[in-house]
């Protein structure tokens, strides 16, 4: 196990800079998830850590050793790929044992290690099968086993769950988390799914256009987003954004509603409120509108409300007696759950 430190990491492809000097320290045994939309640079960062992409600028430090110029095999890392990349012509035993080919261990020790990993992953009975005789989840476990068997300092996961169906994804998510609790290795996990990020990570790194937008625990990035991008990217449905004017501790919405909010903001602001925090029952009235769509989720119902000047906002209503489509509703929120952003820079105002 080891810490991982990225310092001013830059990546350029044909004079186009795709990573603009990112810096991050991942603590020993920490589970860090890189999340962001396609093209944000999260997979490139992971591949640079793995040694599959050259580093244009900055340094990568694993366990106190700069690894920029080391071959992937010498970096003490293991990687699980999106497409599993388990060798179809080899049995599960050979696939898992493949990571030990170059290890300086006796045959007996290699076999013992392989059996241990198979037992942890509950794959002992499948060791003699070929990949085409396995389900998607089992193949993913083989890929994880091949990485585990090397007992690396850092595990790298490149969107490993994105090819699984929803049910299996949830199951594998739990299994990976349990595995981390059991083995305690440092893990860097890349995904574009914010639910995966929220449920698995000790800390989340949110990226956009080659920049880190925010690093924090799932609770921090959800409850105190650093900017509009993070606020809208984390959480589903996305945070509602309403145009407003702030003056002397009061925020006045375009709809005429005024809310007392402490803070030094003055002038045009963007008011953010999560659908979870916006309802038709309690809190200060925020905006009014007509229900256009209802999405029943069981215990609660999502309602889409056309507020006119404020655009469409999403709120939550009771699952049993939600307002009818076409009904006029007043949407309320607790002022403590509102967020203010600078509309020009997108940064949070606190």
């Amino acid at each position: 196990m080891a810490t991982l430190t990225l310092r001013d990491l830059v990546k350029t492809y044909d004079k186009t800079e795709v990573l603009h000097g990112i810096s991050l320290t991942v603590a020993d045994g920490e589970f860090v998830v890189f999340v962001g939309p396609s093209g944000c640079g999260k997979s490139t960062t992971l591949r640079m850590i793995a040694g599959l992409e050259e580093v244009t600028g900055g340094t990568i430090d694993i366990g106190g050793r700069v690894v920029n110029n080391l071959e992937p095999k010498d970096r003490d890392i293991a990687m699980v790929f999106q497409n599993y990349a388990i060798y179809p012509h080899m049995s599960v035993r050979k696939n898992i044992g493949f990571g030990l080919r170059t290890a300086k261990l006796s045959r007996a020790d290699k076999e013992k290690r392989l059996e241990e990993v198979a037992a942890i992953l509950d794959m002992t009975d499948l060791l003699d099968r070929k990949p085409n005789q396995l389900s998607g989840g089992q193949r993913q476990r083989v890929a994880i086993g091949r990485a585990m068997v090397r007992d690396p300092a850092v595990f790298l996961f490149d969107e490993p769950l994105s090819n699984l169906d929803a049910q299996l994804r949830t199951q594998m998510r739990l299994e990976i988390k349990k595995l981390h609790q059991k083995v305690g290795n440092t893990i860097v996990f890349v995904t574009h799914d914010q639910v995966e990020a929220m449920t698995m990570a000790d800390r989340i790194v949110i990226m956009k256009d080659g920049h880190i937008q925010q690093v924090g625990t799932p609770s921090e990035v959800y409850h105190t987003p650093a900017n509009i991008f993070v606020a809208r990217f984390i959480g589903a449905p996305s945070m509602n954004m309403l145009p407003a004017m702030a003056s002397h501790g009061t925020v006045r919405l375009d709809t005429g509603t005024e809310i007392a909010m402490p803070g030094g903001a003055d002038g045009a602001v963007t008011l953010g409120v999560r659908p979870d925090d916006l309802g038709v029952v309690a809190g200060v009235p925020l905006t009014r509108g007509r229900v256009t769509v209802r999405e029943p989720l069981g215990p609660e119902t999502l309602i889409y409300v056309d507020t006119g000047a404020g655009g469409e906002v999403i709120a939550k209503a009771d699952g049993r007696t939600p307002p009818e489509v076409g009904a006029e509703v007043t949407l309320c929120a607790d002022p403590a759950n509102l967020h203010l952003f600078d509309p020009a820079s997108g940064q949070a105002l606190r």
Binding site: L52, E71, P72, K73, Q82, G99, A103
Partner: peptide, 25 residues
């Protein structure tokens, strides 16, 4: 390429990757 890169991380040299991983495929 994932197969090749996985083998690279697993410590094989390029000739071994060609013979052990790519050729059987």
């Amino acid at each position: 390429d994932d197969f090749i890169e996985a083998a690279r991380i697993d410590g094989l040299n390029e000739l071994q990757i060609w013979w052990t991983v790519a050729m059987p495929l």
